[in-house]
Design a protein around this nucleic acid. Structure first.
Lengths: 179, 179
DNA sequence: TCAGAATCTGACCGAGCGGTCAGGAACAAT
DNA sequence: ATTGTTCCTGACCGCTCGGTCAGATTCTGA
């Protein structure tokens, strides 16, 4: 049986502290103190501080890749609804991870592991805009995308309460005449 | 004649570097080097690093206070349109300052000079929601507020291009049936 | 001309940071 | 019991950070 208890505990505590104080605002010393181990132990389990963040964010990143791939197979008529529903599901499932990514943007955007994120969000914008080339449609798409993410990060309400309101405002703004 | 050239130059350079690297990502040494003076000179003109940020953000903060005061005098029927137009004007005029505030949130939200900001944005949310108590209306208001701010920060297009698209999406989302 | 105020600086400080390293302790397989 | 591996640690390193301070320099008004 492999021992991963400490490693998991590090991730749990790091998530908690990153949420409370941000990535830059949390030091390895802080995490180690809360876990009850030494700083050197953190760096035994994770090569760098960044590696902790990457491990934390990985599941969300994978889900985003999946979503974008799924949207690529949807035709222009249905892509807006699929993008709206898919994105809102995603950010509600990964609220903490979304907050974390926003916290470290844009410093980490040039990191190898992160540079596909930009391209992925561009694909989402295209989905929200129904693949329209009209700048106004793309602006609307960006407003909704960023706004929904911000609310999910900031608003502490349950996703059951939040989801219908988010879907409603997105449809009103992006699917005029369909509501 | 009072010499304020150095002070102004510090603010100009600080604005530039904060934009490029963020507040935490810019050191006093960086600013001093770019200005061509010593770090001690910065701290002669500004008591702390935070004071530079506060000086930079002050005009935008004052405008926000003015806007909220103005909205208080508008009746429930007209408050949504007034809030939308007023807010979009504000963030387009103070794009850099808005980006800066977002950069240092939430670390600075508890700072004395910043704690009214929360209360001010709450007032804006109420305006966007037409003073409705319905949680769904407030969610929609938050989505648009945050989304517009994010786009203004991120999108490099001219405000002449941006404004109509922002106003349009806000009206569509918040004033259903009026467009 | 000269005193005093405003402006500026190099040297320095203590603290915190991410990260390294040699080696101790615990555990597993033989 | 011995060996090799995994897990863990204290001490330490180099660096950057915001901030201080005594004193030099420059400006200004009487």
């Amino acid at each position: 049986m492999v021992r991963i208890r400490t490693r998991d505990e590090i991730l749990r505590v790091a998530a908690e502290l990153f949420t409370r104080y941000g990535f830059k605002g949390t030091s390895l010393h802080d995490i180690a103190a809360e876990v009850g181990c030494s700083k050197a132990t953190l760096l035994y389990h994770f090569a760098h501080k960044d590696a902790i963040l990457l491990a934390l964010v990985e599941p969300a990143r994978q889900s985003l890749i999946d979503l974008v791939a799924r949207l690529a197979g949807v035709d222009d008529r249905g892509v807006r609804e699929a993008a709206i529903d898919g994105f809102i599901d995603l950010v509600l499932r990964y609220r903490f991870e979304v907050a974390l990514i926003y916290d470290v943007t844009p410093q980490f955007l040039q990191e190898p592991a992160f540079n596909r994120v930009r391209e992925l969000t561009d694909a989402l914008v295209a989905g929200f805009a129904g693949r329209s080339a009209d700048p106004a449609d793309q602006t609307a798409a960006k407003v909704l995308l960023a706004g929904i993410a911000a609310v999910v990060i900031d608003d502490k309400r349950d996703e059951v309460e939040l989801r219908p309101a988010l879907v409603a405002v997105a449809r009103r703004a992006l699917l005029p005449g369909k509501d």
